[in-house]
Structures are given as structure tokens and as C-alpha cells.
């Protein structure tokens, strides 16, 4: 047995004689005695030890074979995927005027028509082939709740369809939260609404400056009121977009949520991310340039780990660090625009050259359009961070280079953050899996 290629090892100062070991392909975390680590290097493990460490992704029979298998991991994952995930841009209308809105010139009074909704339902039914058992729709906008009637119609139909097939159906919303009143949520829950991701950018003052209503009025109070009204009906996730100026105000939001009784038991997840740069060709009315161009930027590293700590130390849930292929790579994942155009990434909807089909004609080959094999090169396959990165974000590569020819390498980001994030997970998650082997 040999050490896996996809492994990070850190010193363990609070437990002398041990190493903190993280498998990037298994997302397993272990404290490994240095003696055992030496045994791996000296090929002196017992059969029991080999079995145990193999299950954690720490050792493999052959590193070359592991690398070869990794190059096909997405194919195997796609072959075993029993789900179908469709993100639906149900409209491009919005009642907010966010300072950084990346939809910029794409925004407007554009709504999915009844006819397109019918085509969407037909498309989903056709794609939900034998062997599928989970249908997940994510409604985006614009602001999706400006089309709540159409969401109900689409979901009602698909819920009946999956029920007849003995499969599961659920949908989620990515919403600004201002229209998610209790009566709206009650109605949508009946057709499968399971979760809503609501964006709040810091404390009231900061949020209202970044995400006002179109009228200019603050939206913070309305959102908090709606979360309080609906958090017993729907899994509420709180998201937020920070920049180098605003991120320090985000802990005030967490304090406020706690004070208002929106405690970790009532909020399913909290996750904050940096505002990303838009492509240069975008014309936007917003005069805003505090975006991030890469997760490798030092201020993003600092802000990201700081906010993760603030979230976790208050007991709120935030995503674990785990393998995460881009949804572009998932063959049963599509993004459908309000006009029926089909894409592979929500950030690239409406951009010339990235449409891979439409609801009437189906999906064409998109291998080259999205450069699916971007990460299948020696540098990426040899990188211990590959399972967490898979070549990074193609949207960010496109924004920086105007193409997806080069990867969006996240090595500097993980070099700077991974150890901290693993230690946060160890410290704050009350792991039920702690055991000695």
C-alpha cells in the first residue's frame, strides 16, 4: 500500500506524536500516529491497518492506478447518478436594485411563458429516464417569487409525474426573501418547496445599502420578518455576498439573527461568498468595482476563513469541505433560461456561445463549449487538491481570460485556507463519527 496522492497532512500541536490527515477525495479527517505514518512509508502496515486506512482514502494499492481512476471519476459518478437537477431561470425581473447585480443588462421584464413552461415539463419528463429516483428543481431569477404562480403550476405537474413513478420531487428557491410571506410559502410547500436560499448582505445598514428595493427603501426588515414567518415550513439557508469593505459587518448579521430568535435550529445553513467580477462586456448601471477576481486573492482568503469561523462558533451550519465537481460536469444537470434556452452554468446564462440547446430541440454536444476535460492534465491530476477543485470555476476563468482554455487553479486558495477550515470542522462539528481504530 502507498500513500494516496490526494492527501493533506498537517502537524498536530495539541496532540504530540500525531498528524492531522485529510483525504481530499474522501473528505475524511483523522489523527494518525506518526508511527503509523512511518509504517505506510515503509510498507509495514498490517492487513487490518491497510483495510482501515484504505477506507479513509489514506492509502491505496497503487498511486498510478489511483490517478488513472481519478481521471474517470466524473464518468463513474454520472453513470451512478439517480437524480436529475434542473435550475430554472423563471424570469429576469426583480424588485431589488443590488449594487453589484451581475445580471446587469440581462435584467428586465422577461418572464417564462406558459408555453415555455409546458416545454420545460416535457423536457424534464423526457430526461427523467428509467432508474432516476430524485427530481430536483431550483428556481432562480431575477426574483423567482415574482413568478410564484408559474412555479406552482410547473411543480404541481412534475410532482404528480414523479409520484406516479414512485420517485421523489422537491424544489428550492434562490430568492431575495422579500416576497416569501407565510401564505406564499404555505402554497408552495404543497407543490414541493423544500428549501429557500435567502441573500442577506450583513447587518441592516450594510444590507440596505447593498440590496435595496427598486424604490431605494431598505429590504432588511421585510426579509427578517419573512424568515421568522416561514422557517418552520421551509428549510431556510442564509447566503450573503461580501466584498473587501463589507465583510467585517457580516458577524453583526449573525448576532442579530441570534437576538431575534433565528437560532441555528431555525436556520438550516449559512454561507457567505465574495462578490465576483462580471465579464468586461457586461454593461451594468451599477457603479461597483469591489468584486473579487479570484478566490486566491489574499483578502478573499482572510474574509472567507474569518466569516466561516464566525458562522461556526455561533453554532450555525455551513458546508463542509468536500469533493465538489462543477455542475457543468454533471450530465444530468441543466440550467433552463426563461426563454427556453438550455445552459450548463447559471452564471453563463444568456451569454453568446454557451447555450447548449433549447427546450424544443433538446441538448447538443457541449464537450468543447465548456471544455469538460479542462482538468485532465498532468498538473491537475497530480495535484492533491484536485477532488476539491476539478479545474476550478469556469465562469471565473472566462471572466479573467475571455475563454475556458485554462483552469481556474485554486491551489493558492487551498494552501492558505484548507488547514484552517479542517480545524474549524474538527472544533465545531459535534462529530458522531469520532472513534478510535
Amino acid at each position: 500500500m502507498q500513500l494516496s496522492r490526494y492527501l493533506k497532512t498537517y502537524p498536530c500541536e495539541d496532540k504530540p506524536g500525531y498528524l492531522l490527515v485529510y483525504s481530499t477525495k474522501k473528505a475524511s479527517v483523522s489523527l494518525l500516529p506518526e508511527r503509523v505514518y512511518s509504517s505506510i512509508e515503509n510498507h509495514a502496515l498490517s492487513p487490518d491497518e491497510e483495510a482501515s486506512l484504505s477506507g479513509l482514502g489514506i492509502v491505496v494499492p497503487d498511486r498510478k492506478e489511483e490517478r488513472r481512476q481519478m481521471s474517470h471519476i466524473i464518468d463513474r459518478l454520472n453513470a451512478r447518478n439517480q437524480g436529475l437537477t434542473i435550475s430554472v431561470i423563471i424570469n429576469m425581473a426583480c424588485n431589488f436594485n443590488c449594487v453589484y447585480c451581475y445580471e446587469g443588462s440581462l435584467k428586465g421584464s422577461h418572464y417564462m411563458s406558459e408555453r415555455t413552461a409546458g416545454l420545460l415539463i416535457d423536457f424534464v419528463k423526457k430526461r427523467f429516464t428509467e432508474g432516476k429516483n430524485l427530481l430536483q428543481l431550483d428556481f432562480y431569477g431575477g426574483e423567482p417569487l415574482m413568478s410564484s404562480g408559474l412555479i406552482s403550476e410547473i411543480s404541481g405537474s412534475l410532482r404528480s409525474f414523479t409520484s406516479e413513478r414512485g420517485a421523489s420531487y422537491a424544489f428550492s428557491l434562490v430568492t431575495n426573501g422579500s416576497l416569501l410571506k407565510r401564505n406564499v410559502a404555505e402554497k408552495l410547500v404543497q407543490t414541493g418547496l423544500a428549501s429557500a436560499r435567502i441573500t442577506i448582505d450583513g447587518d441592516a445598514e450594510t444590507h440596505n445599502r447593498y440590496r435595496p428595493f427598486k424604490t431605494g427603501a431598505g429590504s432588511f426588515d421585510a426579509i427578517i420578518r419573512n424568515i421568522r414567518e416561514t422557517c418552520d415550513l421551509v428549510r431556510i439557508g442564509v447566503g450573503g455576498n461580501f466584498d473587501r469593505i463589507s465583510y467585517e459587518r457580516f458577524p453583526l448579521l449573525l448576532d442579530y439573527l441570534e437576538k431575534e430568535g433565528l437560532t441555528p435550529g431555525k436556520i438550516a445553513e449559512v454561507r457567505f461568498g465574495p462578490v465576483s467580477k462580471r465579464p468586461d462586456e457586461d454593461r451594468s448601471p451599477a457603479d461597483y468595482n469591489e468584486w473579487s477576481l479570484s478566490v486566491n486573492e489574499p483578502w478573499v482568503v482572510k474574509a472567507g476563513t474569518f466569516l466561516r469561523e464566525e458562522i461556526m462558533r455561533r453554532g450555525y451550519n455551513t458546508p463542509k469541505i468536500r469533493p465538489m465537481p462543477c455542475q457543468i460536469e454533471i450530465s444530468d444537470s441543466f440550467v433552463v433560461n426563461y426563454d427556453g434556452g438550455i445552459y450548463k452554468c447559471p452564471a453563463l446564462v444568456g451569454r453568446d456561445g454557451f447555450e447548449v440547446g433549447n427546450l424544443s430541440d433538446g441538448v447538443a454536444d457541449y464537450q468543447n463549449v465548456y471544455n469538460l476535460d479542462l482538468w485532465k492534465n498532468d498538473e491537475c491530476l497530480d495535484c492533491e487538491y484536485l477532488p476539491l477543485c476539478f479545474g476550478g470555476c469556469r465562469y471565473m476563468a472566462y471572466v479573467r481570460d475571455g475563454s475556458m482554455n485554462r483552469s481556474d487553479c485554486k491551489r493558492p486558495h487551498f494552501d492558505a485556507t484548507l488547514e484552517t477550515m479542517i480545524r474549524q470542522d474538527v472544533k465545531y462539528r459535534k462529530s458522531s463519527s469520532i472513534r478510535k481504530d
Binding site: D48, Q82, M324, D437
Partner: peptide
């Protein structure tokens, strides 16, 4: 052997279900 398992991890091939965008570029902008 003295290994302390803090998290058993996941099977990568089972994780294709509903996905969140890794960088949330698209997800959190609305």
C-alpha cells in the same frame, strides 16, 4: 493502531445529487 477518526468522509461516486455551485458564483448573486 491508535488512529482517531474524526470524520469517515464520503464516497465520491455517490455525490452527484443536487449540487451547489462550488463558488456560489451564480447562486448567491440574486
Amino acid at each position: 493502531m491508535g488512529v482517531v477518526i474524526l470524520d469517515c468522509g464520503i464516497d465520491m461516486e455517490e455525490m452527484a445529487g443536487p449540487l451547489a455551485c462550488c463558488f456560489s458564483v451564480a447562486v448567491t448573486f440574486r
